[in-house]
Design a protein around this nucleic acid. Structure first.
Lengths: 348, 348
DNA sequence: TTGTATGCGTTATCAT
DNA sequence: ATGATAACGCATACAA
């Protein structure tokens, strides 16, 4: 023991050099045994290196490794928010799939501000991840999308992969739900339950996927011979509160005619329920309600909410696949969505 | 234009060298301009460097920067799960505060497996972040804590900061809620509403903070002269489902005697409500229910849940402060928690 | 103020 | 199979 341990002062982290020296081998050899290399190394030496590393408490400096290799096993996930149950479920699914693929994932949150989104993508680019996955973000700004696209293009040009989830507005690999078909099937089921007079709650901000849900629903009603449905479509602010206010400011006559409210997200459906209740409407006796997304943390809601289920794990799997599989071009992939009928729509 | 653009093949990322060359300056000068340095640089040159960087689409290689500097502006957050509303709210609060402090945060999820937790901490150490924040994790294993402590110690020895949130079992900086006092005040308020016969739901796995909530509640009842409360304390599995099953397997006589169920988390309180309802008990008419945490995504629950509010932002702020303020030793910090009475406990 | 030279911890290329 | 040596992209001590 030539070094005095026990010192309180911050020591320099243990490097590969330290390990090599202690094991009596060269530094590249230590590298080969500790971090996966194709090269084989003598069993005796390997043993010495491993124990030396353990004794010293060595951990690979991943930054240095990334610099030397020019790439890392990390994927970056850019998401609107983390406290929103829909997005946290999405993030969880992606992390699950990423772990299966042996990948790290770093999460960045945009707070629905597209300036922040651009800033984040730029910063992420500095980390040189394997891929950047954008999950349904950045819709509150007019048109700075082109700069975002520029930034992502540059990233792709240097070998990075870009994958979009549930956001078909940008020219990159996209994985999304079958919004149209899911909403259409839901509409048909609800029509089958005898509902005829609907109120639809869409999104005030233009969001392609969300409009597909409205269109699909209308389409499904048309399938069942209900064609006047498009009369009652509102486009409030895209939030719980927006939906609540929309319902609360509804004329009494209009409200009385409604049998069922379909909102394009579970979140808005809950806002609608809050609004209905504040007006003394009983659910589902007076008015039935249906949403979209099938958020799992809603299991405690009474009555349980009829909605459209989307297979997040499948979406995540497809996204990770596209993020890791190099070379091929997949363009757009759609994952099925199907209705789940629960207590909030018992039928007329 | 000496370089042919338009090539499809993955190009090498733009480096500081490229920028310097195009601006006609040395590489260190470009460095000083683009990444904050104390040194000043001539306005004309600065201009040229900045435009060159913009034209080339340069972004700092953060890995290389971390290697060169030996440190980064990143903090690592280790958390049990991300789809759990409590933890996602905590993560959101920490990210907010981190952004205010100009820090990046990378999130790692343990899935409540302490082997994974150790693995993650080791990996995180390889990223050399400014600090590691552990938020209420790793309680499903017997005693591998010492290896975790070893790992964290090593990290501290090399200049890293370790901050624990709501987890007082490890010898590091800790920020936690005042579980005892919060539960105690809640108990006193509920006693003031006339409740006398309580059922308490604790945690089957030993968790210091959770036991404090039980102890505090009992203490609060004792303050009000209710001393037989400790008779009815159950310690089911620490989950929604554990609470539900505990209630469902309750003897009919016991159940009939209960006026109010206090669960140590909102999550368990909801499980209890599910259990109560499955037994035909009406809430809050037959039995009142109270929880702890004040999860915001529970706003849609009917009846609204009486609980104990914890100031997540304050906790996050304290945690970030400790993660960034160097040198000082703060030991343990406690953040207040206070009861919020809602519809689930209208009084007898 | 600016440039030269060197170092950060790792991997990769090349001899041996 | 192993070791010397040159990268990787950036920051800094020092010289100019």
């Amino acid at each position: 023991m030539s070094e005095t341990l026990g010192d309180a002062g911050p020591r320099r982290p243990v490097t590969l050099d330290d390990v090599a020296r202690r094991a009596g081998v060269s530094q590249p050899t230590a590298s080969r045994v500790l971090n996966g290399s194709a090269r084989k190394v003598n069993e005796a030496l390997r043993e010495r290196v491993v124990t030396a590393a353990r004794e010293l408490g060595y951990t690979t400096n991943l930054s240095a490794q990334a610099v030397a290799r020019g790439t890392s096993r990390t994927i970056a996930l850019v998401i609107s928010g983390i406290s929103d149950p829909y997005f946290s479920a999405m993030a969880a699914a992606i992390m699950r799939q990423a772990e299966l693929a042996g990948l790290r994932v770093s999460i960045a949150v945009t707070d629905r501000r597209s300036d922040r989104e651009l800033e984040l993508v730029r910063e992420i680019r500095g980390h040189q991840p394997l891929a950047i996955i954008l999950a349904g973000t950045g819709f509150l700004a007019p048109h700075p999308e082109d700069t975002l696209v520029d930034e992502l293009r540059r990233y792709e040009e240097t070998g990075g992969r870009v994958v979009l989830i549930s956001r078909t507005d940008l020219p990159f690999e996209t994985v999304s739900f079958d919004n149209h078909e899911g909403a259409r099937q839901l509409a048909r089921e609800l029509a089958g339950l005898g509902y005829r007079r609907f109120l639809l709650l869409g999104s005030g901000t233009a969001l392609l996927g969300m409009q597909q849900r409205i269109d699909g629903f209308v389409h499904g009603l048309a399938d069942e011979g209900i064609s006047h449905a498009a009369d009652r479509i509102l486009y409030p602010e895209f939030s719980w509160d927006g939906a609540r206010r929309a319902i609360e400011s509804l004329e009494e006559d209009t409200l009385r005619e409604v049998e069922l409210v379909f909102a394009i997200t579970d979140d808005m459906a809950l806002g609608a329920i809050a609004g209905l209740r504040s007006r003394g409407v009983s659910i589902p006796d007076d008015v039935a309600v249906a949403g979209f997304d099938d958020i799992t943390t809603l299991r405690d809601i009474v009555p349980s909410l009829t909605t459209v289920h989307v297979a997040l794990d499948t979406v995540a799997e497809e996204a990770i696949h596209r993020a890791t599989t190099d070379g091929e071009v997949f363009t757009r992939k759609t994952v099925p969505a199907y209705p789940v009928l629960r207590e909030s729509t018992p039928g007329v």
